[in-house]
Design a protein around this nucleic acid. Structure first.
Length: 503
DNA sequence: ATCGGCTCGCGCAA
DNA sequence: TGCGCGAAGCCGAT
């Protein structure tokens, strides 16, 4: 093989068999890294196709029956698919887009595709229903089946250790990440790609599962989405478009004096638009972490030689980059990959019981404390609490599919305070976040939600009702610390009776 | 405005 | 074995 191969540490063998040289094609089942550039899974599939001298088929599907399927999620994924289709059209790769019309109709499709395949490659994503889907495919297919980790700068399964604190993970990264910064997936693997072309998919597949024509979406997104049995009450976010080019546009916007240059100082200010906003595209794999890393470290002159040699776990002076860059890299690498570490290695990552012992104990001790306010899931959903700042945060979530990082913490802390039990708080946070957030159903969402309940944190006195020694936050203090007046005004279209009179 | 205390557990120096 | 210190806080004292 001419190109540098995909690191073995990123490849997990689900079905260990030799490739079937009698197959008609190599199959890449694209489920998480939904992009045609800087994608180790695609590189791996191309490696196999080259080695075997076979065509490559990319099967990019979206199911209908999974939990929280909505116009919002469908639109974002479809917009990415349309772009992928254009990229593959100029290549010898056969791209097979498929949107499941009704839950269950896709049953058997992958198996049929795999019957003619030499080998199947897919994406190793550690969260939501994807791990179970891979496991299930592993029981059904009868062909070599590999999943590839293209999530982070570090392979997420390189260690067995689950890290309970960011500082420990940071220290681990400081020791181990060096070599992984020197390699990347192929930036444009389709460029000048030479592979045999497939004349067509087998008839039995084309007849039962015809490729989805996505042009209907381009003519009328709403009408197109209306044909799917998904949650139409969660509308698409029109100003955040799915797909790699929108992602790269946002990345270019962010890596600038006016955003990254102010990131360090103002990232906690909800009214200042200095956060990267990249998480939706990172979540759906429309954007590669390697592209982000290179853009950000290229903002000011920097090279890997500047990295400190001593692994102290400290945030300061690790990368040897500008403070703005250091601050962002700690989010992008330490915190992002910490979440992937948890999901990949802790099967109970979404279960209440996976919280640290001290947090479980203190929350349990206070579970019978009197609650001054209690709201139903419906009241939370509508942003109908007594607290205008909370309602605004919820309003932003429903309207834009995101909450400002800083207010997201307050949002969660108050849900803990205003529900009947910490388990119910967890359930409501997961429900609201996964339903409305474009970057929900992602390891980082679970980090944020579980942080509210003590994960990655430490006890803070004094012991209070409900919270115990879980870190406590109040809306009043938040409003004192950061400017929120315009934020509240901007997102208070909800139903709370108070906000109109307060501001 | 700034400071310490609240409280736990991990890595590392000793 | 002890020490320092940690994603973002809060509160009361100065």
């Amino acid at each position: 093989m001419s190109k540098k191969s995909v690191p073995a540490e990123r490849i997990r063998l689900v079905i260990d068999r030799p490739a079937n040289t009698q197959g008609d094609y190599v199959l890449y089942w694209m489920i998480a890294n939904r992009r045609t550039r800087s994608n180790y899974s695609l590189d791996r599939a191309i490696e196999w196709a080259r080695l075997l001298g076979k065509p490559l088929v990319v099967f990019e599907a979206l199911r209908a029956g999974y939990r929280w399927a909505s116009d919002r999620i469908h639109a974002f994924v479809i917009e990415g698919m349309i772009e992928n289709g254009k990229a593959f059209a100029d290549s010898p790769v056969t791209w097979f887009p498929w949107l499941e019309p009704r839950p269950g109709e896709g049953k058997g499709l992958l198996k049929e595709l795999a019957r003619n395949a030499c080998a199947v490659v897919s994406d190793d994503f550690p969260c939501f229903f994807l791990p179970q889907m891979i496991e299930s495919a592993g029981r059904q297919l009868q062909v070599r089946f590999e999943v590839v980790d293209s999530n982070g700068m570090m392979p997420m399964r390189l260690t067995d250790r689950v890290f309970a604190r960011a500082v420990d993970f940071r220290r681990y990264l400081q020791k181990e990440i060096g070599p992984w910064l020197e390699q990347r997936p192929v930036e444009q693997p389709l460029k000048n790609l030479k592979l045999p072309r497939l004349q067509g998919l087998p008839d039995r597949i084309a007849e039962k599962w015809p490729m989805t024509d996505l042009s209907g979406y381009q003519r009328s997104p709403e009408a197109f989405l209306a044909t799917f049995p998904i949650d139409h009450s969660v509308p698409r976010v029109e100003h955040i478009r799915g797909g790699s080019s929108a992602a790269r546009k946002q990345l270019a916007r962010f890596v600038s004096d006016s955003m990254l240059g102010r990131y360090h100082e103002e990232r906690n200010q909800p009214e200042q638009e200095v956060a990267s906003g990249l998480s939706p595209w990172l979540h759906f794999g429309h954007l590669s972490i390697h592209d982000v890393f290179e853009s950000v470290t290229g903002w000011k002159p920097w090279s890997t030689e500047k990295i400190a040699s001593k692994a102290t776990g400290s945030k300061e002076g690790w990368w040897g980059a500008a403070p703005e860059v250091e601050g962002f890299l700690d989010e992008l690498i330490t915190w992002r990959e910490l979440g992937y570490n948890m999901c990949a290695l802790e099967p109970r990552y979404d279960q209440y019981g996976s919280l640290p012992e001290w947090a479980l104990a203190t929350l349990d001790k206070h579970r019978r404390d009197r609650r001054e306010w209690l709201y139903s899931l419906d009241e939370f959903t509508r942003g109908a609490t007594h607290d205008p700042l909370w309602n605004a945060a919820q309003g932003q979530l429903v309207e834009e599919g995101r909450i400002h990082n800083y207010l997201r913490m307050l949002w969660g802390k108050k849900i803990l305070e205003w529900t009947e039990s910490p388990e119910q708080a967890l359930e409501f946070m997961i429900e609201l976040n996964n339903r409305y957030a474009l970057d929900g159903r992602n390891p980082n969402s679970y980090s944020g939600i579980f942080w509210v309940l003590g994960r990655y944190d430490r006890p803070w006195g004094p012991e209070r009702p409900i919270y115990g020694t879980i870190r406590y936050m109040t809306s009043d203090n938040t409003a004192r610390k950061v400017r929120v007046k315009d934020y509240i005004r901007r997102y208070s279209k909800g139903e709370s009776g108070e906000q109109g009179t307060l501001f």
